[in-house]
Design a binder for these strands. Structure first.
Lengths: 228, 228
DNA sequence: CCAAAAGTGTTATAACTACACCCATGG
DNA sequence: CCATGGGTGTAGTTATAACACTTTTGG
């Protein structure tokens, strides 16, 4: 049971980049290599609960989105053949930065956990590199027909911030004018009467319209997906 | 490990309907109830291989398409909690009818296996009813951006036959003219110089263009999907 | 006033839909 | 020749993309 935990991190050049936490393995196989955080199913919990639990154990946070990715079980995956259910999750940008700041302040950061930008990943244990590729592919796909991208953002956000999230995920620039019209037409946003001020013309703040179903999981729906 | 095995069956009114094989359980839990065919993973095989094996065991056939559906593992699924990787598969119409005819001729049809139309399913064991709903949802989705529907048809087929498959899957009529243009533009078909004759104007026969990737699994690709 | 981002309008192109129409065959 | 499904043409509508333009703020 592993999880690809994604968030948007602000790089030193000011642009947003996808990042994920990895854990350094302490025992064989693949000792001293980086791997996806994970754990084992206990008898009393469902896989999605176990994913949320291990996510909390490694990051101290609860995800804004959590969905099953795939069940891997090829015999050549690992010396001892293992079937692993992999999940993928999104964390809110502000949750992550707050948590990292708290760790720095308390001096009690979790050992053996490090955040990597997705374009600067180290060599990974098992087939975890391919799994991350698949998770990123799923995210890029899903962002086209679902409002998952809002899982990266705080409660209230501007359209420019949302567009930046889309651009980081998709890896290309989007036209601000057309982007605005598309997300407005999709009905995923509720405009507030508050504005982000500070530079140039103030930008209206929006928040997630939770009335609109994610509507992309089919009959599985909310039971198997965790949203916040 | 279970599999939702789908095929197109010609109903008595001449229209095509989705159908799937179920097996009657002989032991508890859910003894004497219908359930999805399945089995257990052996140590030496991958889940996708196990799915293909159990599929062959229950139907005697090999699928034209086979893909993982979901890994179910909620604690309330079954009295003894089980994690089950579920696959979904397509069988070619002509394979199925030939196999059923062979069984009838030899008098050695597999016991406890029966084909049901998807709109006339009996009460099912476990959460298999919901699993079938999800598989049908996946199929209806996938048919919109992939050429999976061709998995139901024989080597060569007319556009009317392909359109009928789409209509059965989607549950609505499609415009023949627009359908033709769309599938031709998609490049999934290779026209042959043969025609289906017999009534009215002969219809050109097409076959699957295997050069075009299914291109809808992302980085997982062919390793985890079986196509024929 | 100026730079820059927020937000609106306009136009060209492509995709989708409906439906009229012609073509070729069996009876 | 006629009924019927195979196959083509075409016009209206809608989605998408590109980009000019106006608005509103901070400095």
């Amino acid at each position: 049971m592993s999880t690809v935990i994604l968030t948007l991190r602000r790089g030193e050049d000011g642009s947003a980049v996808l990042a994920l936490p990895l854990v350094l393995r302490t025992r064989d196989p693949y000792a001293d290599q980086w791997a996806l955080p994970g754990g084992w199913l206990t008898a009393a919990e469902s896989p999605v609960d176990a994913a949320a639990r291990t996510l909390a154990e490694t990051t101290g946070l609860s995800p804004s989105y959590l969905e099953q990715l795939y069940a891997f079980g090829a015999v050549d995956r690992s010396p001892t053949r293992v079937v692993s259910i992999v999940y993928w999750a999104l964390l809110r940008q502000d949750d992550v930065t707050a948590q990292i700041a708290a760790h720095r302040a308390s001096g009690r950061a979790p050992e053996n956990v490090r955040w990597f930008d997705v374009d600067e990943l180290p060599e990974l244990a098992f087939d975890h590199s391919r799994i991350i590729d698949y998770a990123l592919w799923r995210l890029r796909n899903k962002v086209g027909y679902s409002r998952v991208a809002q899982g990266f953002l705080p409660e209230e956000f501007t359209l420019a911030e949302l567009r930046e999230a889309y651009e980081s995920i998709l890896g290309r620039q989007l036209d601000p004018a057309n982007f605005r019209r598309q997300v407005e037409a999709a009905g995923n946003l509720i405009p507030t009467d508050r504005f982000r001020t500070g530079s140039h013309r103030p930008a209206r703040l929006y928040r997630d319209n939770t009335d609109v179903e994610l509507a992309d999981r089919g009959p599985l729906g909310p039971e198997e997906t965790s949203t916040r």
